[in-house]
Design a protein around this nucleic acid. Sequence first.
DNA 1: CCTCAAACCTGGAAGC
DNA 2: TGCTTCCAGGTTTGAG
Length: 304
Amino acid sequence: MPELPEVEVVRRGLAPFVTGATVSSVEILEPRSLRRHAEGPDDFAGRLTGARLLAPERRGKFLWVPIADADAALLVHLGMSGQVLVNPTADDRHLRVRILLADGSRVDFADQRIFGSLAIDRLMPVPERPSTRSARSGSRMPVPERAAGESKGIPSQVAHIARDPLDPAFSDRDFVRRIRAKRTETKRALLDQTLVSGIGNIYADEALWAARVHPRQPTETLSAVAAGRILAAVRDVMTRALDEGGTSFDELYVNVNGQSGYFSRSLTAYARQDQPCLRCGRPMVRESFMNRGSHYCRNCQRLR
DNA sequence: CCTCAAACCTGGAAGC
DNA sequence: TGCTTCCAGGTTTGAG
């Protein structure tokens, strides 16, 4: 289940192969893998063929490769089971789209469940702040997104996605203010990609365990300190996962070389139901929540 | 505007 | 053994 660390591993792996490369041809084996490209497979292939690619960028779980001399990018979302594989030695069983580069390299998009998708998307200027409330107190200094001229903008399909906690321009103060203004449960809020992006079911459970917050704790009862502690826990677990190449349990998530990350060994909450809590030793529980599993310690993470 | 749940998918596991 | 049902979950969409 690729979340921010896994997508970042893919971005870093892909960068040396695609930056400056030219697309020589595109093969589409499964049109449903282009669901995000409304104009259809032929338009996708036509617009990508001959394109010169720039350095890949990421926000949350979205990855994109800007196209030179165009206000457009190749957008990639891995969904549940998407993989980007560079020069694989054998064809993946679930190969959906193949992109051939002029230097002979192959970039394959494989995806068992077809929740992921590719698209060619229009790049828009990065808004100063994605929230529609921005017009209010108008005297805030603009926050530079990156070094000047480095980013060509953000794909239209990513414009509504909040910055992620590893983005230097992420505002901790805004996050704390916005999560406390919500009327929902804390885990739901962490999974809301318009509040903070990049968090999925695994890292939500990990961060809540580390911050000792119950997944169903109402957001309006969180103190500013508690909200800050959750955000720090998110950053900490994502950073450590990135250092270990991401989390994977099976072959569904791998880097561009087809290898799995090692962070699954370091998980403290996710999939640990009936095993002792690593803090207090009591058995962890798994509850069904939002059509997902929620793993936590009833002793360390109490509703308050 | 906000919140929430259904729908989209496959294949491995579990149940019968 | 073979068939059916369940389960995993990120995002979009639309209902209320």
